[in-house]
Amino acid sequence: MKEEIITSGRLNPLIDPVLNVWHWEIPAYLFLGGLSAGLLFFASLYTIMNKEKEYSTAVKIAPIIAPIAIALGLIALMLDLKHPLYSWQLYTTIRLESPMSWGAWTLMAVMPLSVAWVAIYLDQVFPKVDRRPNIILKVLFMVIRLKDEEDENGINWEYKYKWMRDLKNWIFKNRVTMAWILMPLAIILGVYTGILLSAFNARPLWNTSLLGPLFLVSGISTAAATIMWLTESKEERVLFSRIDLVMIIVELFFIVHLFMGFLASSEVQIEAAGLFLGGHFTAPFWGLVVVMGLIVPGILEALELKGFHVPVAVPAALILIGGAIFRIIMVEAGQITRWLY
């Protein structure tokens, strides 16, 4: 028998009795970042493959979510910082060994690129605006103006200033080059969400390099589900349903390997795996993430591809909810795994 206790009454807030430094903000960012990474990955992939017409939702419509999601994710990250007024310090240095530094710089690059991506397609997605300005339009009037041509569907619009229109045309002309830049950045963003956690050797549950690919695949899966949900073209829905099915299978494969790796590792990692194999997180992880978030939508997607009618919203929503719960559980569970006491 061995009992280890801190007898001097250490009760550092957020550290004792169990580490709980990161709350909902981090999983929220990991989810939104992974989703955006997947959406931008597909947008650039099908631009490079010259399939903009066939898969227009993936290239033109779904990426609209990306900058919004990244912005919300960044707000979550800012809320997590305990010394937020100094957050500009992230951009005074590049620290190659710190995943968070990589993430900060990647976001700095991805954010404007994703806004530019949305901006070059916005007039194709929403060619006309309503006559009566609503709140969103009022904000948009800072950068757009109405043209004279008007019909029953609304009024045509264009970007307000000439330099904006020139810039838009220039980027649109070079959109394949931009896609080549955006694709690796999207992959780095997606992998980063996992590597952020796996770099912490002090938290045995996170300390596996498999977390990078696992989070990337999960992010791509949530993006495929989103595109599948948004699209009105049957061809596109079938394609992204297939992609999602492959991602689900890869994810399940990674999860099995994750636990094989833990169980074949050192004691602290065996204990970490125990949280999911009989411990506190067994039911939420296997029930909500694996069965509800992966297996059930996978079966539904397979049935749909076989010709059964399944409302697309069901598997898509399950994938998204499962992806979010997966990140919440990993962040919560990882923080209570430790080396001492």
Binding site: W22, L81, P84, Y86, R203
Partner: peptide, 10 residues
């Protein structure tokens, strides 16, 4: 220090 908690986690 921005208070991100990375060092605490590590």
């Amino acid at each position: 220090c921005i208070g991100c908690g990375a060092c605490i986690q590590s």
